[in-house]
């Protein structure tokens, strides 16, 4: 019984988001062949890329539609012929789309083997999940460097943290779910951390952007598993924020792109993917403002999530229900 309730609870917020886009922008002259991009990445990051692309193919226009990762999966599965390109940070959902035959291959691309799957899914960023905190709130207490450290800190100062800790609502955010499951797979610490966050009344968010906003206003003093790239963009404007990559291991996600198997403009979509991957390999921050792919020695234990069919493990209905039940037990502390 409880199981079914959870499933319904899972669907409600998703469907209510379906009506509007987080952002919707058009590039290039109207009344031309249109490339529709469904994406979870903020427009600000993609605008330079699209403009560079349009400079080389001026005969098309681009419509850039932004929504959450879970939404993308739902919308795209429902109407794959309405979009040409799908970009998402939820690697698991993207891989499952490819596995289920929703993508068209882009052949003969010079791209590292570990950053592509089935000639259809191409990773183009490496972004660690970070702990972001508000500098003001850490004047008296020390800045945590690891998950273990953070647990200890919240246990020692529960009043300081009460209601001011944020993390993803894994029920709403595909990326949040991916980070949570990968964390849980890697270490037991995750469950203890979740439990402690639950005890100090953690706030749950759908997206990184909102969490970072609340951090800056001081509504939150710390957020766990925020996208480092988004936080960095904000941190550059103000020195309020401190970005920490957990020293045990930062879980690192790769943003991926695929061409729809039912794309209305398959050739343009194909060209766009090639163009994006080319910009990525050039890595000029002016045309490619996202963190490029890296398997480097930047972090000793950099834990990049692999493009591997095992990503579908936690998308299994039974496993997802079980995971969310456990997660809710830990974080939603209804008294």
């Amino acid at each position: 019984m409880r199981y079914i309730i959870f499933l319904i609870a899972l669907w409600l917020p998703v469907s209510s988001f379906a009506q509007g886009w987080e952002d919707q922008q058009s590039f290039g002259e109207p009344n031309q062949a249109q490339l529709r991009i469904l994406s979870s990445t903020d427009t600000s990051f993609f605008a330079p890329i699209i403009e560079d692309f349009l400079a080389s193919s001026p005969d098309i226009s681009v419509e850039y539609l932004v929504t959450g990762t879970a939404d993308i999966d739902r919308l795209y599965r429902a109407a794959p012929d309405e979009f040409d390109v799908v970009i998402s940070s939820a690697m698991d959902l993207q891989l499952k789309l490819v596995n289920d035959g929703f993508s068209a291959p882009v052949m003969n691309i010079d791209h590292p083997e570990w950053a592509q799957w089935n000639n259809s899914l191409f990773a183009f960023t490496s972004e660690p999940a970070a702990i972001v905190l508000n500098r003001q709130a850490f004047k008296q207490i020390h800045v945590p460097s690891s998950r273990q450290d953070l647990i200890q800190l919240m246990r020692d100062h529960p009043d300081h943290f009460q209601g001011r800790v944020g993390t993803y609502d894994v029920r709403q955010s595909g990326l949040g779910y991916l980070f949570a499951t990968q964390d849980a797979r890697a270490t037991e610490t995750y469950w203890r951390l979740t439990e402690v966050m639950g005890r100090v009344g953690a706030r749950l968010y759908c997206c990184s952007g909102q969490m970072i906003n609340d951090l800056r206003t001081g509504k939150l003093i710390i957020a766990y598993n925020v996208l480092g790239s988004y936080a960095k963009a904000q941190a550059e404007n103000s020195d309020d924020l401190i970005i920490i990559l957990p020293s045990e291991f930062p879980t690192t996600m790769m943003r991926t792109i695929l061409v729809s198997a039912a794309a209305p403009a398959p050739q343009h979509a194909n060209n766009f993917v090639r163009h994006l991957l080319k910009l990525q390999s050039i890595g000029d921050p002016l045309t490619f403002p996202l963190p490029p792919l890296s398997r480097s020695q930047d972090f000793q234990n950099l834990r990049t999530i692999n493009l591997d069919p095992a990503l579908m493990t936690y998308l299994d209905q039974m496993k997802r229900a079980a995971f969310i039940r456990e997660w809710e037990d830990a974080i939603v502390q209804e008294k």
């Binding site: 199981y3 596995n99 592509q116 089935n118 591997d308 069919p309 095992a310 579908m312 493990t313 039974m318």
Partner: peptide
């Protein structure tokens, strides 16, 4: 009272191939 299967990550991971074969 319900049948559940909590299969490990390795169940599907072991099916990873060089050619990125799809798995169902």
């Amino acid at each position: 009272g319900r049948v559940t299967l909590d299969f490990p990550y390795s169940s599907l991971s072991m099916l990873n191939t060089e050619a990125d074969d799809r798995v169902f």
